[in-house]
Design a protein around this nucleic acid. Structure first.
Length: 288
DNA sequence: ACTTGTCGATTCCTCCAAGT
DNA sequence: ACTTGGAGGAATCGACAAGT
């Protein structure tokens, strides 16, 4: 290993920065070393995996800034190391100064709380069924209602699938019935350019094409300022559009799109986000 | 101390529609 | 006809627990 003050650099899969299995290693580095540089996704011909070049110095961090960029961009942003050590998220996410400043501004307003384990929020992947065991129609009375990715829409669900939840039908993933059957869950589609999520209070199980956030108990801290928003998300009746006529469905979908936009406006207003900042945020999400 | 089993996260594969 | 990327499905792997 390097002497005090010495530098150490390596090219590794970028999973080092994100996967939970490396959480303790990341904490160890942040706690005892100065993280000098992270260069994401450097190009090496023939190499398929995404990589990261990292450089650390054997020296306790002291007001240190990490230089961060994503290849081919070589203009490195300086991000305080303290940002990464202070966030419960535990990942070394790619961020730039503009986004970071907006993030700080929002945090200062004390209107938000993080969806952490400490706040009783947990995330999980759904169960993994053996081939052809999840069906679109109910085939026997033992099957229960489950959601696959295609059932999840923004703020709504559409139809559902069926599955007989027993050992021989399962291939992996979350098998904890208690967790899967939690009453209040937020479902997120596994794939998609934007976040597609909805809330469900009917104890519906999630298949692996759906991630879910569940709550042990409602958090003790529920700032009154965000109540209008929470009420929209948590009390809205679950809309099932599958049995509606085409014209009625189109009307409802328009209404959902309009409500969606209204919620966005409300959130931006709530956090005092300016038009310029809004553009930065939406551009960073790849447009919507 | 080694082996086996379980859970659940992560990686890898396949299908298929849309684009060229 | 071939390529590409989105969406979802299947396989694999690490962490931990329990058994020998």
């Amino acid at each position: 290993m390097v002497r005090g003050g010495g530098h150490f650099g390596f090219i590794v899969p970028d999973r080092l920065c994100f996967n939970s299995q490396f959480l303790n290693l990341r904490k160890h580095i942040l706690g005892g070393y100065t993280l000098k540089k992270l260069w994401f996704k450097p190009f090496f011909g023939g190499v398929i995996s995404d990589n990261v070049i990292f450089i650390i110095q054997k020296e306790k961090p002291h007001n240190a800034s990490i230089e961060i960029a994503e290849y081919p961009n070589n203009k490195f942003e300086k991000i305080p190391q303290e940002i990464y050590s202070s966030l419960s998220d535990g990942t070394w996410f790619i961020v730039n100064e503009q986004i970071l400043n907006i993030f700080k501004k929002i945090k200062q307003q004390n209107l938000i709380f993080e969806l952490t384990k400490d706040n009783k929020f947990h995330t999980s992947v759904g169960f993994i069924a053996k081939p052809n065991k999840v069906t679109e129609t109910k085939e026997n009375s033992k099957q229960i209602k489950v959601f696959k990715g295609e059932n999840i829409r923004r703020f709504t669900t559409r139809d559902c699938c069926f599955f007989d939840f027993k050992k021989e039908n399962l291939a992996g993933g979350t098998q904890d019935k208690e967790k899967l059957s939690k009453q209040n869950k937020i479902f997120l589609r596994k794939t998609g350019a934007n976040i597609i999520a909805t809330f469900d209070s009917n104890n519906t199980y999630a298949e692996q094409s759906v991630y879910f956030i569940y709550i042990d108990k409602f958090p003790i801290i529920m700032p009154t300022d965000i109540n209008p928003l929470v009420n929209i998300r948590f009390n809205s009746k679950l809309l099932d559009l599958s049995d509606k006529h085409t014209s009625e469905r189109e009307r409802l979908e328009e209404e959902i799109a309009r409500t969606d936009a209204e919620i966005d406006d409300l959130v931006y207003k709530l956090y005092g986000i300016t038009e310029d900042e809004r553009k930065i945020i939406e551009d960073s999400l790849g447009g919507k």
